[in-house]
Write a protein that binds this DNA or RNA. Sequence first.
DNA 1: GTTGTTAACTTAACAATGTTAAGTAAATTA
DNA 2: TAATTTACTTAACATTGTTAAGTTAACAAC
Lengths: 213, 213
Amino acid sequence: MPPKPKTQIERQQLRTLIIDAARELFVSRGVAAVTMREIAKRINYSATSIYLHFTDKEALLRAICDSDFLALATSLKNTLLITNPVERLHAMGRGYAAFALTHPNHYRMMFMTERTPCDPTESSLQQNNAEQDAYFQLKSVVSDVHAAGCFRSDLHDADLIAQTIWAGMHGVCSLQINMSEDKWIQWSNISDRLQLMQQVMMRGLLRENIGLN
Amino acid sequence: MPPKPKTQIERQQLRTLIIDAARELFVSRGVAAVTMREIAKRINYSATSIYLHFTDKEALLRAICDSDFLALATSLKNTLLITNPVERLHAMGRGYAAFALTHPNHYRMMFMTERTPCDPTESSLQQNNAEQDAYFQLKSVVSDVHAAGCFRSDLHDADLIAQTIWAGMHGVCSLQINMSEDKWIQWSNISDRLQLMQQVMMRGLLRENIGLN
DNA sequence: GTTGTTAACTTAACAATGTTAAGTAAATTA
DNA sequence: TAATTTACTTAACATTGTTAAGTTAACAAC
């Protein structure tokens, strides 16, 4: 009943209300299984109201992902305090996996769902800001490890190294999320798999005299 | 117009006709974007005819995946001829990535799409058959490398090792398939990423005196 | 204070989708 | 020749994302 001009702040509040409701549903039942009408009902609006704030379902999804990317970066922030760069890298890996496996449906939305690629300029997040950009955090740690002379002598490209570490952790996490129920494979313990992957990454990337403590 | 009792063989032929048409469409435009009506039109049947052979869209998807899993195992078969087990493992990794990146939509269907888990007993493929089971191929090579005493002394669990190698390659391939268009990341060359991942896996898993040739 | 105008909504409606129900026609059987 | 079965088809349904067409309240202008 109450249509009146809203302030910028009120609009923003409704926007995040939609995002939070949608996230909760997407996360618990998967993106495809949740309808716009359901999201709307959850916050006592009509489905069409959502379209006043997001051009379509995918834009809504992208907005949710944006705020989840921020959540990932935030959850990794405290590992940045570790002074030893190799230990910090190790801790970031553990933190990343913890995020993935405690929020599997967030993780699926962020990294495993097909999405039309988007401009970083259109994101609400700032690239290369350590508070908001988890990839930048990873790349920074990699650079620090490199600066400390801990990588093997043939490794110089921080992006390449970062992407390889990311791929290793992502491989374990995404197989766990998507395939761990598949009875074809006799899955080892997920913590064993994570641990071995980290060990392999460290042994494979670091000089030989650098231990994992 | 022509309804007449069909032989088992004719039924099977129509089944694979449906599978092939569906695969072609799924692969070129993605599973979600293809409708049952489209698949049917492609082979000049009505949409409902498909339901005489597959209980629903997902069952059709699963049948396609089954035959793609066979294709993967088949495409890796020739690497099994390599006598040196370490080289064989390396070649399997390259073969796996080649399959993933030349058939990205097959790969997405097989390993990246959410599916309700299925009994191995319901599959048309035989588990632990080297002709049909790519995971068994990998595990066998891992066992051979282990038997040759090439792994580090603390590594004994063939499943754990196989799953870690798989995760490493899957990580690189799946990030490439799902995220390579994402402008947030300055992606390195995919062949560099694959090469480094294999190098890291080898260095991380093998004894130190074992080279990659 | 009536009359627009605008903002924030709603209900109706649309086309498309997966799927099911209800035919239909040819072959086989009785 | 009649009945049944098989292999299909066309209709129909409920649900989806999305758009069009209102509706109602606040505010501005005269």
